[in-house]
């Protein structure tokens, strides 16, 4: 269980989050949405432990994360950054291995098998020998996903769930890989792990979230199952667009909805 309790984050006098209270349960995909600058990335950073709260706390299974050591946190959760450039020519294999090394030393055939497995999960089987810097943005994002999966490869360890914290994991991906990435997240939750993801695309959020948290102006504007949260009223109030939720566009308009996949 990750609990956010009356969390206030201030940076240089600006209040980015104002007494936010919410929680995420293992076994579920919790998706954070909101307009630009609403504070969703700030919320995720606070949950990762990157930002010190001005007041309130983030707790992981009851323990405030501010009191936990970096190594302890790394064993319980992995974080996928929005983007991360590398200054040195690491191979894809070496980048994914960084995730494994976070959990201690491995070697030989076990390491090799785990890296290959993580790469296969993100549709990059056989990419181990390529240089990270020479991949496309979307491929780089998937390499990082593989690294993160290598870090928390078992969703549950000693009866305790582990967590995937994903900051816009689909931002540079094509539609097929957006779906496969979120499938990975859903499988992780289904196996007992916890997932918190910041997403921009409301259709994807509606499709994959068990629970949707809408952040608006540093507070929680709505919180619940997607069908209850995504309403005409919320879209107008939070996103400032007058839109009709669930209504098909007029005949003859081309549109693509991930919800229709496989139907």
């Amino acid at each position: 269980m990750i609990e956010v309790q009356s969390l206030t984050i201030r940076i240089r006098g600006r209040t980015l989050l104002d007494r936010v209270t919410t929680a995420a349960a293992p076994g579920e995909v919790t998706v954070v949405v909101g307009p630009n600058g609403a504070g969703k990335s700030t919320l995720l950073k606070a949950i990762c432990g990157d930002l010190a709260p001005a007041s309130g706390a983030v707790r992981l299974d009851g323990t405030p994360i501010a009191a936990m050591r970096a190594a302890e946190l790394a064993a319980r959760r992995a974080v996928l950054p929005q983007s991360s450039a590398l200054a040195f020519p690491f191979t894809v294999y070496e980048v994914v291995r960084l995730g494994l090394r976070a959990g201690g030393r491995l070697g030989g055939s076990e390491e090799r098998a785990l890296v290959a497995e993580a790469l296969a999960r993100v549709d990059l089987a056989g990419f181990g020998g390529r240089f990270f810097q020479e991949l496309s943005g979307g491929e780089q994002q998937r390499v990082h996903l593989a690294r993160v999966l290598a870090q928390v490869r078992e969703p549950v360890v000693d009866g305790r769930p582990r967590w995937l914290l994903l900051d816009e994991p689909t931002s540079s991906l094509d539609l097929r890989h957006q779906l496969s990435t979120l499938d990975v997240a859903r499988d992780f939750a289904a196996a007992g792990g916890g997932v918190i993801a910041v997403l921009h695309d409301l259709n994807l959020a509606a499709l994959y979230a068990d629970r949707l948290v809408v952040v608006h102006r540093g507070t929680i504007a709505a919180d619940g199952p997607p069908a209850a949260v995504i309403t005409d009223e919320m879209m107008a109030r939070v996103f400032g667009v007058r839109i009709r939720v669930g209504a098909p566009p007029p005949a003859g308009t081309a549109f693509v909805l991930p919800q229709t996949i496989g139907r």
Binding site: D50, A75, V79, P81, S84, L86, F88, F90, L98
Partner: peptide, 13 residues
């Protein structure tokens, strides 16, 4: 090499 936040996420003080 990944960045300071990323290193912390991987367990480095």
């Amino acid at each position: 090499v990944l960045g300071e936040a990323e290193a912390r996420h991987l367990g480095i003080e």
